[in-house]
């Protein structure tokens, strides 16, 4: 059993954290009234440990009162990551490594997909699900590949749920995912500023700041966003343990998620999972600001187009043909 003195000290700390000032014993008692309200919502959320003063509940309480990621200092970021890692350890016995690595200077990520070379094998779809800890129960996927007849240029005429031997003659395959628009409609639609564009061009979501209103999903003209209907179910042996705060960490129920160009990989110099797995080499990824990069070679030497370019969303995802 924990002593009452320990509890008092611990809660005093929490209140200091939340209200950002030193509390005496008198103000501590005042704070308890507020905590009772917060505590009731926590018990509803379901705690494995019955004690309201368990380590898990204290961590959850601190998590509940944290700020938007864009307003956090580096210490705040480190603290919340430590809490998230510890919570995962207590709850599921998982050893996670969550990063909060910021954008690399002078980097703007760009993506190109060769529609004349893609053969519709869908290895990218599976690799994306595996890498990004996407819920397996609802079979959510962040990439959708359309099978389109030659001569058609409309994705809506394509078959997005094919399952037969590929490639089929006289058809081409066109993968669709979040295009990380420079002028993204989803960012404008968000009422809580839970989604924004980072300096390296990736549109990210603060999963703890998202209220799940799905306005962004309605605003996106590319069907680029997904909603978490459940607490994601991922078998422990399939879980990617190297995570990023804005990327593939396990999203809470009722929040939006999307493709982040595998932010946890690309910010450490690696290729996104879909690019690395692609068996045909149709996917090209790189730094748009580097004139010697592969993506720039594609933009300068191949016939490229962007989807629904007339909307002015300015995506950083090009399709090209040989």
């Amino acid at each position: 059993m924990m002593s009452s003195k320990y509890i008092q000290e611990e809660f005093s700390d929490i209140i200091d954290d939340i209200f950002d000032k030193k509390t005496g014993r008198r103000s501590f008692l005042k704070g308890m009234a507020g905590l009772a309200a917060a505590g009731s919502s926590l018990t509803l959320a379901g705690c494995s440990n019955n004690s309201p003063f368990s380590e898990e509940n204290i961590l959850r309480l601190k998590e509940y009162f944290k700020g938007n990621f864009t307003l956090m200092s580096q210490e705040d970021k480190n603290a919340t990551i430590k809490r998230l890692e510890r919570l995962a350890k207590i709850k599921d016995g998982l050893d996670l490594k969550i990063s909060s690595k910021g954008p690399i200077p002078n980097v703007l990520f760009g993506f190109a997909l060769n529609v004349s070379r893609c053969e519709g094998f869908m290895d990218c779809v599976q690799a994306c699900v595996d890498e990004n800890n996407i819920d397996r129960k609802t079979k959510t996927q962040c990439i959708r590949v359309f099978e389109i007849e030659h001569g058609e240029m409309n994705v809506q005429s394509g078959n997005g749920k094919y399952f037969h031997e590929v490639p089929v003659d006289n058809h081409f395959y066109m993968g669709v995912q979040c295009f990380q628009c420079e002028n993204a409609p989803c960012i404008k639609a968000c009422p809580t500023k839970a989604t924004w564009r980072e300096d390296d061009g990736i549109v990210v979501v603060d999963y703890n700041w998202c209220i799940g209103c799905r306005y962004c999903q309605a605003a996106c003209p590319y069907w680029g966003r997904r909603f978490n209907w459940n607490d994601p179910y991922i078998p422990a042996e399939e879980l990617t343990r190297k995570q990023h705060y804005l990327g593939n960490r396990i999203r809470p129920k009722g929040t939006m998620e999307k493709c982040t160009f595998c932010i946890q990989r690309t910010r450490t110099g690696r290729l996104p999972a879909c690019v690395e797995i692609c068996p045909t080499g149709s996917r090209v990824f790189g730094n748009l600001l580097d004139p010697k990069s592969e993506i720039r070679f594609v933009l300068e030497n191949k016939k490229v187009f962007r989807m629904k370019e007339d909307l002015g969303t300015d995506p950083k995802f090009w399709y090209f043909v040989d």
């Binding site: 690399i104 110099g269 580097d290 990069s293």
Partner: peptide, 24 residues
Amino acid sequence: DNDVNSRIKNAKTVMESQPETGET
């Protein structure tokens, strides 16, 4: 001024090679 194409064109710093990220 903010669209991707002009950002690419206006990229002032010519990079000799891709940036090192420490984990490459």
